[in-house]
Design a protein around this nucleic acid. Sequence first.
DNA 1: CTGAAAGCGCTAACAA
DNA 2: TTGTTAGCGCTTTCAG
Lengths: 335, 335
Amino acid sequence: MNIYDIAELAGVSIATVSRVVNDSPRVSEKTKQKVRTIMEEHGYTPNVFARGLGLDSMKTIGILCPDVSDAYMATAVAHLESRMHEHGYDCILCCSGFEQSVKEKYVSLLLAKRIDALLMVGSTYAGTGESDKNTQYVRDAAKQIPVFLINGFLDGENIYCAYGDDYQATYDVTSQMIETGRKRILFLCDSHSYSANQKLAGYESALKAHGLPVLGDLKLYVKNRIHTVRDILLERRDLRFDSVVATDDGLAVGAIKYANAKLLKVPENLCITGFNNSALSICSDPELSSIDNRVEELCNISVDNMMKILLGEETEVNRNNRIPCRLIKRCTTDF
Amino acid sequence: MNIYDIAELAGVSIATVSRVVNDSPRVSEKTKQKVRTIMEEHGYTPNVFARGLGLDSMKTIGILCPDVSDAYMATAVAHLESRMHEHGYDCILCCSGFEQSVKEKYVSLLLAKRIDALLMVGSTYAGTGESDKNTQYVRDAAKQIPVFLINGFLDGENIYCAYGDDYQATYDVTSQMIETGRKRILFLCDSHSYSANQKLAGYESALKAHGLPVLGDLKLYVKNRIHTVRDILLERRDLRFDSVVATDDGLAVGAIKYANAKLLKVPENLCITGFNNSALSICSDPELSSIDNRVEELCNISVDNMMKILLGEETEVNRNNRIPCRLIKRCTTDF
DNA sequence: CTGAAAGCGCTAACAA
DNA sequence: TTGTTAGCGCTTTCAG
């Protein structure tokens, strides 16, 4: 059943059917009704490929993230899908992992699919914030379609970023630890992404601002697996620390497990904060204080900006959207 | 840059270019090389819409799930995407929630996009296992394209199911609780889906098989939020139980929080099992014993079957794939 | 307000 | 081995 069949059944031309499908005002209400009835009776659906060929768009966007099975990204993807759906767009989801070549391959694949825009979730797509060669593929993609980065910043034409102020959040929380008497703050991290580097910078700045030394030993990079973190901490008997600033909830829960194993009082003897305010934070015991970088808001900003761009209002949109994070206080902090 | 441009630059016809793109054997190696060089030099990518129009396929499948932000579904989606990608297929992701009308709308939307197959994750799409009217839309979709159901069973032409044996798993775990001396086993549940009903049946069978009464009071349906579960349990001072069979890890963790709040010894005074073996289970304290229904295997079965069907080997595939679950033992059980 | 017809870029049957 | 050409189903000028 195609547009010709409908046209014939309705006794009009295909042009008229097309106009009805697209709700053009240049059709009399009477023929509109007539055609619509026929279409419904026969369950007609326009062929999206043909339409795509003509319009060079299938109203589809690409969502790229390293791994949807990660809670943070899953939340983001769920929210993005829902918001895009409101606007009549479908989402092609791709999980690239963290490897450069795979990320690049996925982006070209997505571009070949002629998506209308590309949404990238996760600061891994922003590089480390230093060299440019690892982010060139993003810039190249932006030459073809608008690119939206969630949770990372990358400066470039047609690249629109929305991210939480990880620097400030980490600065603040570190400062509060110091102000409540902590002197040896462990920085627990699992990557060197743009976001991770921002958090590190915030941590170091706070130490310096309060006249504390930045100790290499207290910057610990480990795999983000709860038991692994706990065990590493347990083994490092040389390492002394009275508090933990973790860049992810999983790492922080590892620290909680460590505290429980050593029978340390939390937060009195060990003060801990996590990042992302995930389900883990209310699952652990004691429950974890965690910095919420408000993914849903980041998603909303990106989607709103995208719709503006797609409708040709690029002049009105800010390429650099940084929003404050907030600390969700639970039981592993006393501030 | 389209096929005509390439053809002209290479001094061949568009048919030849098309053959090169599709790696047809009916082109001399020499011209193949020549054309390929030109294509690369100019960064030519075939237009997927035009190709889709001709082949009536864009090598895209639809993945429908109620909510990707749920850990179980996120894992499934991540795995599915990765496996489909291996086979050169892209995935359109849709999150339908649990409302009937929305689920139906999403399915028609996906069908209109001319996907090659539909993957549905979650037993909500299998109905309750009783009436047929809630699953008619699934059967209708199956008239157009093959439908694959993960974690639920629905009998029907062109519908292929893969699910864990929730009945048996729940039967076994309930039996073990009884055999280790428990007499009042609370069944904690948050839905009436096909899967939930299977679990309930397993629970009830086990009670009967061991000569224990099936008590209405001990079947508790609550919202799947950790603190809510804990609070409800705390309030129900009339309710006596010595063990908990939860249909989801979140519910089970709620029970753990309840036990901790009441200073009950786990598992001695309260034995608890969860379902899905999610990240929550190693996060809680004590860590949760949980039934793993092996999503990844379910996904693999579905993807393998799908590829067979898409390649026209439907005779070889089983529509009803039930696989055993396994209990991952941690600290909330003593068996 | 409606229709005829020219694309959109590719695939595949048919010719050569 | 290669080229010609007729679709695939829709959108959109251009005429009327």
